[in-house]
Design a protein around this nucleic acid. Structure first.
Lengths: 333, 333
DNA sequence: ACGATTCGTTGGAACGTTCCAACACCCACG
DNA sequence: CGTGGGTGTTGGAACGTTCCAACGAATCGT
């Protein structure tokens, strides 16, 4: 017989009932030491593994949370995910991860799959769901959205930095360095990109500078193309909507033979680790922390479903590096 | 009642038996159109979601594969994962993702958890398991190891590039550019790092050059530190054990005020996307493809468990960029 | 007109657990 | 010496599906 051993097999081999075997494997103190040893030994000899699906079914809980991640390729999301996983594990949850690859309809079906798997909660590390879908999901299961504020949906919490404020900080930083021709390369037409853009515009206005905005996207190629346009417009400083795009912008600068920061300054947004090595200034968010907060909010809400909707803001700050201001390497020498 | 609706609820509302409701929801052709419509309507009105745990239990299959990823932060693994997910989804499997964070013991317990969830197969995107553990897991469930060759374990397949060969290609490339003082920054003391190092040494020997090896690791900081040592040794070209470390090396070069490639040439290993923007030469592996192959091997083996152990090698090649040879940007101008 | 076939439908068993109520046993207590 | 309370142990029900054998009704061929 090559069938996987079940509790019955273990119980039989140990000469006890399935119930006692179950108790013993759960570490209950009510089982006699002698039977406990016999049961554990039998389980070991048989290579027994408890069947979580059966267990979940009867217990009415899966101890699993579902995580949707917008884009696996953006290291920023990976860093958030890492925080979610860490905290979820600590709290006794496994994670079931899916991606919609930035397509709303596969996103929908993937999350539906999570619900069918009876995840106890949902963490959406960015998403492209319609409001209706989002509300539907949040109605069924505790949900937290990471990366932007979502209010007014019952059963839903959110975590993010303040994108408008962060963008203003970036402008402040560049303006303080004496830049006037600060061009913003956008992240396309989505909520976060719009907020960052708004912050940029407010910041420019506050400094009495004329805003100049060029289209981009949240990808390397978007940053590359946007940067080229910005340079043609005579930019002396680039504020790019996210770090990935900033890396693309860096390539554009290199291809144009421009030095950073001597010819053009560069600031990104997100705070992804890699930019440290690249010595690029960025508006940093505490990514892993956002993931941890998300997991905490979620597990809290699972424990207490009625709780009112909460939003947690994490701190956003400029991490100044060599791409703006004096070069770090040069300074060190 | 706020209990989630079950098949019984749907059946009752539609005025049929649970069996027929089940049939209808599975899209069986044997149910009369009129009852089918009634059942579907009832399900919709109730917001019914099939319970996958119950379904898995009785069908004796979960349609889920478990994926272990060594390190979420290395975009290389994310790219492989992407391939796995894509193909798994196509073949009708969900994925359950875990990380051991490079710690063998949490790795072990995480994978044990996957087994308890009755995943039908295991994809290990790099791992630190002992041979004994690996064999134990492979005995229980079809398994494929991505990233290095693993022979002789029944029930286990593997996919990788040829690391020794790839490293030789890197040396060939640099030697062809006229470099003689090619220093290798290692990836530490692990199997892949050793293979790449061996390939480097063979390559150097083949060109009649004297090998020079400095310790590093598969991280940015390892590459940074290793590069500094290499530069002190008078390197004119750096062959760094992986791309992440190559980014660290780039930072070291920048901090030393050295130009790439005029002063020092740089070659990485893995083929991660980001390096394209950074214009760094790398020994590229088709990462997403490796993930797809892994998923294919796995689903094949699930379908046909007796199949003999197979190894699939993917092609590895040098992608020459500006960090070795004439600068791309300059050439374009 | 009657058995055979098809069509649509149904109850029941099973999947592998957990948990509850109930039980047998033993010991201590009055 | 009976009673009360542990202490260990047990069978059974339940979780929400799927699937099989079996069913009644309608349709078919002869």
């Amino acid at each position: 017989m090559s069938r996987r051993p079940t509790l019955y097999d273990v119980a039989e081999r140990a000469g006890v009932s399935k119930s006692l075997a179950s108790l013993a494997l759960q570490g209950s103190p009510k089982v006699a030491p002698s039977s406990r040893d016999a049961i554990l030994a039998a389980a070991d000899e048989l290579g027994y593994r408890p069947n979580r699906t059966a267990s979940s079914l009867v217990r009415q809980r899966t101890s699993t949370i579902g995580v949707h991640i917008l884009d696996l390729h953006n290291p920023v999301f990976a860093e958030i995910l890492d925080g979610v996983q860490e905290r979820a594990r600590q709290r006794g949850y496994s994670t079931l991860l899916v991606t919609g690859n930035a397509d709303p309809s596969t996103e929908r079906t993937e999350i539906t799959g999570l619900l069918e798997s009876r995840v106890e909660g949902l963490v959406l590390i960015a998403h492209r769901l319609s409001d209706a879908d989002l509300e539907e999901f949040a109605r069924e299961v505790p949900t937290v959205v990471v990366t932007w504020r979502t209010d007014g949906v019952p059963g839903l919490d959110s975590v993010s930095g303040d994108d408008e404020h962060g963008a203003r900080l970036a402008v402040d930083h560049l303006a303080a360095l004496g830049h006037e021709r600060i061009v913003h390369v956008t992240g396309g037409d989505n909520r976060i990109a719009r907020e960052r853009r708004a912050g940029y515009e407010q910041g420019m206005a506050a400094h009495g500078l004329e805003p100049y905005v060029v289209d981009g996207s949240f990808t390397e190629s978007g940053g590359y193309a946007g940067a080229l346009t910005a340079l043609d417009a005579g930019a002396t400083a680039l504020f790019v909507a996210n770090d990935l795009a900033a890396i693309g912008a860096l390539a554009a600068l290199r291809d144009r033979g421009l030095r950073v920061p001597e010819d053009v300054a560069l600031v990104g947004y997100d705070g992804m680790r890699l930019l440290e090595s690249l010595d690029v200034t960025t508006v940093a968010q505490p990514l892993a922390e956002m993931g941890r907060v998300a997991a905490d909010l979620l597990t809290d809400r699972i424990a207490q479903p009625g709780r009112e909707s909460t939003y947690r803001r994490v701190e956003t700050r400029v991490v100044a590096r060599g791409s703006s201001g004096p070069r770090r390497g040069a300074a060190r020498r």
